[in-house]
Simulated scan of single mutants.
Amino acid sequence: MTERGTDPQTTGAGGTRRVARVVLLDPDDRILLMHGHEPDDPADTWWFTPGGGLEGEETREQAALRELAEETGITDVELGPVLWKRYCSFPFDGRRWDQDEWYYLARTRGTGPVPGPQALTELETRSLAGLRWWTSAELSAARETVYPTRLAELLHRLLDEGPPSAPVVLAPEIV
């Protein structure tokens, strides 16, 4: 689930967790972000895109759609191309998480309230504070922590130029 944590899932070489994330845009080009926090410190917060680790033999596309449905209740989406790829490593819930993340573009026709989480793990329940649609301008002006850290710039470029012809490899983020 969270940018900085979730239950362990299928990992690749070296224990790196394979993750699918969703850059979900509504018809007004707002992006849906989740608000997370350290389970034992609700003051340590950040915003991030929906997504999480692959389960079993599922593909990243399947994981992206499953995680989006579980974390937001949104199922009526058109999954697009992989926009960005990145490696990140961070502490969360008393351990270090190493992740290989792929960010998929997705569109929804809905503009109303998000249905909300449908199937959270115990750790996700303890670390998720909510969901919110953000305009590009709101994201650019945000003083809160957002992952990936260049998301405002990346979203602005996506909205101006459209999806890249091939996934952009982002600089690793080690926290």
Rank of each mutant, 00 (worst) to 15 (best):
A152P: 05
V19Y: 10
G162V: 12
P27I: 06
T2C: 06
A137T: 15
E38I: 13
A63V: 11
L24S: 07
L120C: 05
R126I: 01
T121C: 10
D28H: 12
W134D: 09
P91S: 15
E71Y: 07
G80D: 04
T111P: 05
E138Y: 07
L32T: 01
G130Y: 12
D41H: 12
E38G: 07
G56P: 08
E58S: 10
A171E: 15
P27N: 12
D40L: 14
R21C: 03
Q9C: 08
G116D: 06
G12W: 09
R17G: 12
Y103K: 05
V114W: 09
L32N: 00
L155P: 03
T49S: 10
T145S: 02
L33V: 01
F48Q: 08
C88N: 03
G12L: 07
Y104D: 05
P42G: 06
T16F: 11
G36Y: 06
L170D: 04
E124G: 14
A63W: 02
A129G: 06
M34D: 02
G130Q: 09
R86V: 00
L120R: 07
T10N: 08
A166T: 12
G80M: 04
L65G: 02
T11A: 14
E153W: 08
I31W: 02
G162H: 13
V82N: 04
E161P: 04
E138G: 00
P27M: 07
G110C: 12
A141L: 12
G51F: 08
R60M: 08
T72D: 08
P81S: 06
G110W: 03
L139S: 07
T2I: 00
T6S: 15
R150F: 00
E71K: 13
A106I: 01
R150Y: 01
K85S: 14
C88T: 07
Y103L: 04
T6Q: 14
V77Y: 01
E57M: 09
E70H: 11
L32E: 00
L158E: 04
L120S: 10
K85L: 12
G15S: 06
L33N: 00
E78K: 08
L24N: 07
L123Y: 03
L120D: 10
E70R: 10
T121P: 04
G56W: 02
S89M: 11
V77C: 06
S89Y: 09
E55F: 05
D29S: 11
P148A: 10
T11L: 00
R143C: 01
G14Q: 03
W102K: 11
R95S: 14
I74D: 05
M1E: 11
E122W: 01
G5S: 09
A142Y: 02
E71F: 06
L128P: 02
Q9Y: 04
R66C: 04
G130L: 13
I174R: 13
A171N: 15
D93E: 10
P115N: 05
I174H: 08
G112L: 14
P113L: 14
V168K: 09
H35V: 03
G112V: 12
R95H: 15
A13E: 14
W46R: 09
R107N: 06
P91M: 15
P113S: 15
F92V: 14
W47I: 01
G116M: 09
Q99D: 05
G80A: 10
R157Y: 04
H35Y: 04
D100Q: 14
G73W: 08
L131N: 02
I174P: 08
E55R: 14
G51T: 05
E58G: 10
G73C: 12
G130F: 12
